[in-house]
Write a protein that binds this DNA or RNA. Structure first.
Lengths: 345, 345
DNA sequence: CTGAAAGCGCTTACAG
DNA sequence: CTGAAAGCGCTTACAG
């Protein structure tokens, strides 16, 4: 008998290993090994056939809770992000989800928009044994939270930010910044400003370093008045432009640490009557589908965010939790030249 | 002894109910009832105090797998979406996450970007008992998938789209469309075009209906040449504008079914040398932080997407799975007038 | 080549 | 007011 269901999914009695074993006239241990493809199982072909047939006929699906209890493995990876609305995390999630699925694991994503926003609250919700490990992407993790984490006997890994006592996976944000700035230098720009990310954000820190390095490699000295911080959102970008234009000698080009900020940068420049790229060039880190539909289409540096999410998941699941991980994912970083950058006039 | 940990979270022996019971000199059944706040538990204050102290001292955290196995409840809600990169789903997720947490449940979000993209693949990954119910947001669910779903003895609910045999929660997309079009009518527009969503998307269907209704209520007849479909992305919006401008008498205003499309609409209008709002007004459904930073700042209709996600979660967890649910979430829909709409000249 | 048994950590109905 | 026992559904080391 297959379980019957009704509208909305009425819950009927589950099919268990014992049901399958009875039907196939074997012990449930045998069924278990067949289900899990136990390589050590030596079974007669006709017995296996009976088991497989019963499995199929009853539409057996293992009970995750029972399996987890027995094996002490959840088959689930946790991922904690600041905000689902940030498209950067969307890409990381997608990469992590795919990598987890490849290993037969589910992914459980939580954001700090819930409750008081602390990683701790998310941890409490996870309880004990809901996930086998935790990826912590971006955002600010306080020392207290890191201590709590340490108490949980749970493997973790920082993603897109350094930390975790030498357990992190990042991208080469310095290189991304240098590629952006070198592009501006090659176009002939000499007064290149930087709209950075929020103080304390590790990616912001590394992009700013890359900006300074590229300037110096080009024989220029950085000008503190041309470096302004912000948030990683459009509002922060718009505000930053306001401060930038107060400088006595305004820049001819702006390197923006984040594409969302750049949307605000573009609109603020226009509001100040400056045309892009004729009067000011703009280039930003991270590409998005909408970048080519901005006015003007935005030159960006595309980062391998999916690869980052995928690699982090793999490492979390394979590297022993007491071993350090400090990896820079080396998938290609690509300059996407559109119409927001041009030689200075 | 509290469990010791090392870098990366070395796994140490877990604290179980039995450990706590031993320390508090009671049976583990008592500890269990204290942990779960059993209202029927009659316990001497000093006994409770001993239990609470032991709980705290050992930092006890219930094993989720054991509890799930025993109670046949996962304490987790599943949510299946087409794509994490779509900001509309980000809002729904956030609402669902908060509502789930309020009920002590975790949320497990999966997207169709994994594997072959079918809901079925996600269901297989979920296995048996990983979630207590499933929210299916947007996207296309085939009949085959709906049949599979019915076989799973799992309560489900469609979110933001009708379906599921009378199990869905939606917003009043018709009203949103009428508000947008009425705004254009009040400004004096008479040739109002519609850039719709993808064929088969239920929200697209209802927004288009609202558009037609509003036109007729304003004494106008819809013109098929002014109705073009598209995707819910910038590329679709841009293409749609191209087709719209082939009409002998181009529109003076465009109602766009989705804010992401509208980004493409704005850039395509500019590419065709048409200024917004002087020559063409644009209004779109869904508000985003970036809307006010577009060029020009975009007039939108803000939808209560968080409330939708939250309500769907509540209904999934409370309405018996064999009862129909057909709810329209009535939280306020708001017209946000910015600078992309103006009277025709 | 297959079976029987133990036990993962909980909750709950029942006994006293 | 508290304890003892059964059992959720699985996996695995071991027996034969």
């Amino acid at each position: 008998m297959t379980p019957s269901t009704e509208r909305g999914g009425r819950r009927t009695r589950r099919v268990t290993l014992a049901d399958v074993a009875r039907k196939a006239r074997v012990d449930k241990a045998v069924v278990s090994r067949v289900v899990n493809n136990d390589p050590l199982l030596n079974i007669r072909p006709e017995t296996r056939a009976r088991v497989v047939a019963a499995l199929k006929e009853l539409d057996y699906r293992p009970n995750v809770a029972a399996r987890s209890l027995r094996t002490a493995r959840a088959g689930t990876v946790g991922l904690f992000i600041p905000d689902f609305a940030n498209p950067v995390y969307a890409e990381i999630i997608t990469g992590a989800e795919t990598a987890a699925a490849t290993r037969g694991c589910a992914l459980m994503v939580g954001s700090s928009t819930v409750g008081d926003g602390r990683a701790q609250t998310y941890l409490d919700l996870l309880g004990q044994g809901r996930v086998d490990g935790l990826l912590l992407a971006g955002g600010a993790i306080t020392d207290e939270e890191q201590a709590t984490l340490a108490d949980r006997a749970l493997p973790w890994l920082f993603v897109n930010r350094r930390g975790g006592g030498g357990r992190h996976v990042i991208l080469d944000d310095g290189l991304a910044a240098r590629m952006a700035v070198e592009h501006l230098l090659e176009l002939g720009h000499r007064r290149i400003a930087h709209v950075g990310g929020p103080t304390g954000a590790d990616t912001a820190h590394r992009r700013r370093e890359g900006y300074v390095e590229a300037l110096r490699a080009g024989g220029l000295e950085e000008d503190p008045r041309l470096i302004v911080g912000g948030t990683y959102g459009p509002g922060g970008g718009a505000q930053a432009v306001g401060r930038l234009l107060e400088a006595p000698e305004p820049p001819t080009a702006i390197f923006v640490a984040n594409v969302s900020s750049a949307i605000g940068v573009l609109s603020a420049l226009r509001a100040h009557g400056l045309s892009v790229p004729e009067e000011v060039s703009v280039v930003a880190v991270h590409d998005l589908p909408l970048a080519e539909h901005l006015i003007p289409p935005l030159t960006t540096v595309r980062m391998p965010l999916r690869a980052l999410g995928a690699r982090a998941t793999e490492l979390l699941l394979t590297v022993p939790p007491d071993r350090p991980v400090e990896e820079v994912v080396r998938d290609p970083i690509e300059l996407v030249v559109r119409q927001s950058t041009a030689p200075p006039r």
